[in-house]
Computed example of a mutant assay.
Amino acid sequence: MTRLPVSLQKLDPNGLTHVELTWIEKRIEHWIRFGRVAKDQIIDRRRRIVSFRPGAIFAFVRWAANDYGTIMSRVDVVRAVAANEPFTTLPFVRPGGEILLSIQGWPKVSKVLAAIDTTDAAGVDPCDAAPDHWRHVHNRITAGQEPRAYTLERHRAWLKRRKAEG
């Protein structure tokens, strides 16, 4: 992944970040686990492009298999960037985004999906959770440890901090 200045990438005139999703059953599956989609464009029965406004946080899951089983699984939690912000490139994401979490390998990916479910169960939409929480989940899972759950109390503290930084 390469971090490029905005001037070196072609940006959407509306400032949207586009994610190409593919679904070829039991072969290639790219999907959004959470996020507020601003625009949804169907290309054909197997492909579509979803778009996110600057600042939106979303989880992008990629999985691929062959005749012998899973060959790749990955989850990225990304913040869509505004036109003046630097970003990191990511396959199938144009132009790229701020990567908050990037995990590979099904055992670790399933732990991330469980952390997303836990956040949801706490009554917080995962796309509204503090960006630092997704960095925490990335670091803990990468280190082989269990991440702390995102609670409603943590979320309220994040909202107060964001308001104070205003």
Rank of each mutant, 00 (worst) to 15 (best):
A130G: 11
A65I: 03
I24K: 14
F34N: 10
G166N: 10
E20C: 13
H18S: 15
V50H: 06
R162S: 12
T88A: 05
R94Y: 03
P107R: 04
P5N: 10
A65F: 00
D117N: 13
P126Q: 10
S51A: 13
R154Q: 14
R45I: 07
E20L: 14
G15P: 09
E98Q: 11
V50D: 12
V81Q: 01
L4C: 04
T17P: 08
L8M: 15
L16S: 08
P147K: 01
L152Q: 13
A59F: 07
P91A: 05
D132Q: 05
A59L: 01
N14F: 12
L152C: 07
A64T: 13
N139V: 00
R156E: 07
G105A: 06
F52W: 05
V50R: 13
I49K: 07
L21M: 12
G96K: 00
L113V: 08
L4A: 12
P95T: 00
D67V: 10
S73Y: 05
V61G: 04
E29K: 08
A164H: 04
R154V: 07
K26F: 08
D128P: 05
H133A: 01
C127E: 10
V77F: 00
F92E: 07
V61M: 04
V6E: 11
I49S: 08
S7M: 15
H155I: 07
R46T: 12
I24P: 05
L101P: 02
E153C: 01
D40E: 12
R62C: 06
K108W: 07
D67W: 06
E20F: 14
I32N: 07
H133Y: 14
R62H: 00
L11K: 13
A129Y: 10
P95K: 00
R27K: 05
A121M: 13
K111C: 06
P107E: 04
G15E: 10
K108E: 10
A64N: 05
T142H: 07
S102T: 03
I71E: 13
C127K: 11
G123H: 10
Q9L: 14
T70L: 06
Q104E: 15
S110Q: 06
K26D: 08
D128W: 06
H155L: 12
D117K: 11
P5H: 11
Q9A: 14
R33H: 12
R53N: 03
G105K: 08
V75L: 01
T2P: 10
Q41M: 12
M72H: 15
A149E: 15
P86H: 04
E153A: 15
P54L: 02
D132A: 07
D67A: 04
K111A: 09
I57V: 12
H136R: 02
R27I: 03
I49A: 04
L90W: 01
A143I: 06
W23N: 15
F34Q: 03
W158Q: 05
